[in-house]
Design a protein around this nucleic acid. Structure first.
Lengths: 331, 331
DNA sequence: GGTGCTAGTGTAAGCGCTGCCATTTGGGAC
DNA sequence: GTCCCAAATGGCAGCGCTTACACTAGCACC
């Protein structure tokens, strides 16, 4: 089933069918009607591969995320998807599981698909990609990592400020022994969130901080809490790198008979929907995922075609959200 | 950057480069090495569109789900993805948001992409699709809806049995006034879960059931609970169509000062990871999402190529999981 | 020196579209 | 009736790849 058969049936040329399909240029409305009739009768759906091969473009955006299982990433994805659909684009996703090897594979896959734009919402990085990406001439947005370059926009959240807000708040409540829970990926000394915690420690001398890490899942949060606590360390507050892990921590504390916030305070990050629905509701830091999604889409879709010269770095200042999982230090 | 340039650089023909790329047939290892060198030097990545156009196939599976935001769907997707990758396939997803109009769009998109196989993990349906799908000759697996046909495999969970297990258990604890919370999609009288509840009511005369529905999200669960309770109905147990909505219900009850399970029992469905992490942990029904994912992949990948004649209908019997959100009826 | 293999490569015909350019058609204007 | 100029269509060359099929060595054998 292809253009030619439709053309034959409608007694026109393939070019005309193509014009109808792309509702471009002027096709006499009687002709158009005949073609559309043929298309429907034959249940014809254009071969997208042929289309993008011939057209050289693909009206598809690629989204690569570290962990779609975490609603944080998914929320951004959803916004991108709906914006893209509104603009007539499709979206294809890929997961990296925080592995930069997988990032490379995924980027190459996207290049192979000749996507019209690529959003990398990842915290891992692979330097060799920058070159490949640049040569591919695909507009790219990095969220979280990377530095701005021609054709590459960067969107970042000022995690440091977010973490600082959390730590200052906890400090004001008398907390001095803090646990910090991250996922494996965040352990690298280059990581900004880790650094923020460490810097805060330096800034506020009375602070004692221990860290633990595990997978970026509910279960990972629980495991990390377990290893943090069973080391004999006895924090009055646990700061978590995100809400999902915080919910995991909540469970571990509950099972150990520790009350939140009376015995231990817990904080999340991201302000994912779940943070309001868990018990107790999490004190967290809001990251405007919809705004990020919109920014990404705008940047990608406006850029495809035009080669913007100066690509800005956009930094977002996250907002502290007080709920029920934090309280005065108990000891 | 294309095959020809690589060929020129390696001083071979495009056919040979293609052979190397598909590591097919016999290529002298010295030649192969030269080609690979050229590929790397040029940072060449094959145009996937051209590939599938020329080859007529696409080594891509399509997955269409009703609501990827719900981990139930996502878990199945994840399994499919990892199985697919292991078999050298890629996966593309689409969401329908329970709208059959969107289902149609997505299916056509997948046909346009000439996917090697299509998994529809949806509860909505559109009859006209069956024909289109059949004519497209794409192997299809439906989860949850539809009836088996040539080239279409069906996988179902016996929801009725699951619901029955829940109702019987609650009944044995003395519960007589039950709330049933679903998402909008489930309201249709044809829906099996709804029917199961209604049939149970008929089966056990002393039962009184009221239903409420909202979106398939945490917030939707909460809203549905709100409308159920503010109608003046005072259930001793609330049965939820899935875990996510149940967690939403949990919150609403908590905010109304109702204790779970002392005042009201709550049950979920699916046994999503979150059901263990919320408070109180949900009594639920386990649906083996990994098994479903494997079945889908097996069916799709083995089928692509061979035209299996008899496509079985696979029915899964779900298992009751007792946790902390249920207890004896209070009144 | 022929003949018959096989292993390794090259040639070229599409795959189903799009987009440029050429061609036809149908009215006015004269 | 002629001429001219849109408006509407058709023809066809690619897009970058795969895949018959054809071809060339190189070697063993009679």
């Amino acid at each position: 089933m292809n253009l030619e058969q439709v053309a034959r049936r409608a007694k026109v040329s393939t070019a005309t069918v193509s014009r109808v399909l792309n509702n471009a240029s002027v096709v006499k409305s009687s002709t158009r009607a005949r073609v559309i009739k043929a298309i429907n009768e034959l249940k014809y759906y254009p071969n997208l591969h042929a289309r993008s091969l011939a057209g050289g473009k693909s009206r598809t955006l690629g989204v690569i995320a570290s962990n779609m299982e975490n609603p944080f990433f998914f929320d951004i994805y959803k916004t991108i998807e709906s914006d893209a659909h509104a603009a007539g684009y499709e979206v294809v996703v890929a997961n990296t599981d925080y592995r930069s090897e997988q990032l490379i594979t995924s980027v190459r896959l996207m290049i192979g698909r000749r996507v019209a734009g690529l959003a990398a919402i990842v915290s891992e990085m692979a330097p060799e990609l920058i070159d490949e990406l640049n040569e591919s001439r695909i507009p790219v947005v990095f969220y979280d990592v990377g530095t701005p370059r021609p054709n590459i926009t960067n969107i970042r959240v000022d995690y440091r400020r977010g973490i600082d807000k959390v730590i200052d708040y906890l400090h004001s409540l008398g907390h001095r022994r803090l646990g910090f829970i991250g996922h494996h990926d965040i352990l690298g000394p280059i990581n900004e969130r880790m650094k923020a915690v460490m810097d805060a420690m330096a800034r506020i001398p009375s602070l004692e901080v221990r860290t633990a890490a595990d997978a970026d899942t509910l279960e990972g949060g629980r495991q990390a809490a377990r290893s943090l606590l069973s080391s004999g360390f006895d924090p009055t507050a646990v700061i978590c790198v995100n809400d999902i892990m915080a919910v995991g921590v909540l469970r571990e504390l509950r099972e150990r008979g520790l009350r939140v916030p009376q015995d231990v305070s817990v904080t999340g990050f991201d302000n994912v929907k779940l943070s309001e629905f868990c018990y107790p509701a999490l004190t967290t830091v809001h990251i405007p995922r919809d705004r990020i999604g919109h920014m990404i889409c705008t940047s990608l879709i406006s850029k495809s075609g035009k080669t913007s010269v100066a690509d800005p770095e956009l930094v977002i200042d996250p907002e502290f959200v007080l709920r029920d999982s934090t309280g005065p230090a108990s000891r």
